[in-house]
Nucleic acid binder design. Sequence first.
DNA 1: AAGTGGTCTAGACCACCTT
DNA 2: AGGTGGTCTAGACCACTTT
Lengths: 222, 222
Amino acid sequence: MAMGWQEVRDEALRRIRARDWPPGARIPDEAALAGELGCTRVTVNRALRDLAEAGLLERRRRGGTRVPLTPVRRATLSIPIIRQDIAERGQEPGYRLLIDRLEPGSAEARAALGDGPLRHVVALHTAGGAPYCLEDRWLSPAVVEGVDFAEVSANEWLVSHVTYAEARLSFGAMTADAALAEALGCPPGAALLLLDRSTRAETPITWVRLIYAPGHRVDAGL
Amino acid sequence: MAMGWQEVRDEALRRIRARDWPPGARIPDEAALAGELGCTRVTVNRALRDLAEAGLLERRRRGGTRVPLTPVRRATLSIPIIRQDIAERGQEPGYRLLIDRLEPGSAEARAALGDGPLRHVVALHTAGGAPYCLEDRWLSPAVVEGVDFAEVSANEWLVSHVTYAEARLSFGAMTADAALAEALGCPPGAALLLLDRSTRAETPITWVRLIYAPGHRVDAGL
DNA sequence: AAGTGGTCTAGACCACCTT
DNA sequence: AGGTGGTCTAGACCACTTT
């Protein structure tokens, strides 16, 4: 008895796995568990909230806590600065600005940032001299007024200046056309991993497509 | 004054964004903030813990709480059952088992599950009759002893029977060879999005590669 | 050695939602 | 209408780690 919240969480997890609490079932309420396990309701609450955040329980006021019939697990995906990502792989990060001009936005960019001229920044990230990823970015001009992306990548500038914004990510794949093949130093027709991200705080900030060189993988944990 | 934990969190976020608490700086300790904001230390703790879990603060006992110089944001990626995923897109899910036999594992499968014969299950998921994704899975035989995957996909069986396991995800891209092109109903050479996942609880359970039809996207939030 | 976050207790009030 | 989770208070002890 007298369990800490992590012990309570582990015990609850054991009961779920053991089908003591089968899928769809309602589990005892917090007060009952607190009494049974010899701790306060706050401790039980902390433990069950943790499991609910991971998608392993569903909680509702008045409705109680249930084991979901079809749990939707949630994985965490860390979003590092590209140059750090490269450095952690033990390679020398490099960066070259290819395009920086105002343009009418692409369809995706307009959907994320609204209409009107947008700042279009295209840059190549290299690892140990080899192409690593192409950064195709559209920015709300007001946010980056006067910023020069020749030396510092937009990726890096944004992370350190527009911290804590909301982001939406989307993975996809595309075939390398001639221009991409040349930029990334790969054969035309190669399969490329895409990672699109739109970012906004109070107001839309940026939409970016990262196009990785062939063979690249993006990992997520849990 | 008298703020709830979410208000405390929002106020802290505001100070971070406004550079009242610049990157690298140590912020006031919990007791000080509690006094300033008119709540208890527990409430401040809850708020700052929430920000730390999102990667926006770094906390250490005795070392205090700091604003990270280079924050690593974490996104959440939900992992649904494939047939539900299809149903939510408003299409009719279908499933066809292609292969189910014991084999020596592929390199990736052996790395995740260990050596020895593994159960290899290959199946096609369809959406409204059209190929949606190919599921190429390797399983520890003991875990799925006697289970028939002809009617229920391994994806679905595992979610409801091996709940709450650890998983590691990895995204990539590959080119459709002739066999894949036929299975997925796409031209050879098409770029395909891959999602690899290895799952283990106390013991390794499964390694799976999902190969999506061209154009498919996988979304993540925050 | 001492300061900071981590956690627990006991009690309370409230918000929400299901019955 | 009532039960359940959500949250807050006030106080306390502990764990860690930096000074």
